[in-house]
Design a protein around this nucleic acid. Structure first.
Lengths: 165, 165
DNA sequence: ATGAATGCAAAAATTTTGCAGAGAA
DNA sequence: TTCTCTGCAAAATTTTTGCATTCAT
């Protein structure tokens, strides 16, 4: 683990986000800062609802519309990454706002970052082949995480026992 | 192009889907068959709404709920692939019901299939690294297609002219 | 002071669900 | 005949939008 560089990272992500907003002359309201803090912390991959819950602890009157507006703003200026989860709501990631692969549990919707090399070669080839101007990509793997696998085995065992009776 | 093998492909996809449904003892209603036909044809990547439009031509009273139910059934038994489009509704593909890469236009939401090799090696490594049992993946590239690029250039030119006046 | 952001409520958009009746097996 | 599927309407989700008010700059 590397807690030190993690907090360094969140600090700098916070600074980066704030600079970008300032540079583009967006206003730094308390609610907006609170959203930034949640996403810059880089802990997990929260949904809008989860961000809202956390922000409301500090500013209880914060509306979900404000969270949506802020998250969409941050997405538009490429300061957060949006991850769509089949069968779940969208998740947001401020720690690494560039495309990178994930592993997603189809049971508990847990999201884990992966670190493969960049797909630059493939991207270039695809641009050449299709005439698209490629701007981003997503590479996500879906499966069942260790925890949910154990739970499934338990359930199977229970089911078998029930049948055996 | 290869129209012959295309229609062969849709024929066999249709047969495959029907067999699968029969094997699992689902009923082959006219509405269900119509949905199958649309998706087995493998033309494009229609949304539920688009499938509904087409099915209604033959069976005008078909409800959108039936389309949702059928599409979700086909997804569950792995006979169609679901593609989530950021800023758009989900799309479905019956021609190639296994994970494969796409290029998606972020302007007009056009979807094009790609044919890269399988990601088997990567998948195995990820399973080993994360303890996940990997069941599927998605690899999609986002960009602006040739058509939309031309349109954007036109708009830019118009904008420039307006400013130059 | 000025214009942008907030909060609220209403509206959209998408998908799911319950249930009575129709129809495939 | 039986049990699944359909169609309809209602509900649940998720996200967007309009507008008066507040507030950052």
């Amino acid at each position: 683990m590397n807690t030190h560089s993690d907090s360094e990272n969140s600090l700098s992500r916070m600074e980066e986000m704030v600079s970008k907003l300032r540079a583009l002359e967006f206003r730094l309201t308390p609610q907006r800062m609170a959203v930034l803090e949640v996403l810059a912390a880089g802990e997990g991959h929260p949904s809008v609802k989860e961000v809202h819950e956390i922000v409301k602890r500090k500013f209880p009157t914060t509306s979900i519309a404000t969270i949506y507006k802020t998250v969409n703003l941050l997405k538009r200026i490429n300061e957060i990454l949006e991850i769509s989860i089949p069968g779940g709501s969208k998740r947001y990631e401020g720690g690494k706002p560039f495309p990178h692969p994930h592993v997603i549990c189809i049971r508990c919707k847990k999201v884990i970052d992966l670190d493969l090399g960049p797909l630059k070669d493939i991207t270039t080839r695809i641009a050449d082949d299709t005439g698209f101007e490629i701007r981003s990509h997503r590479l996500d793997f879906f499966g069942v995480c260790g925890d949910c696998k154990s739970r499934e085995k338990l359930t199977q065992k229970q089911r078998r026992q029930r049948h055996d009776k």
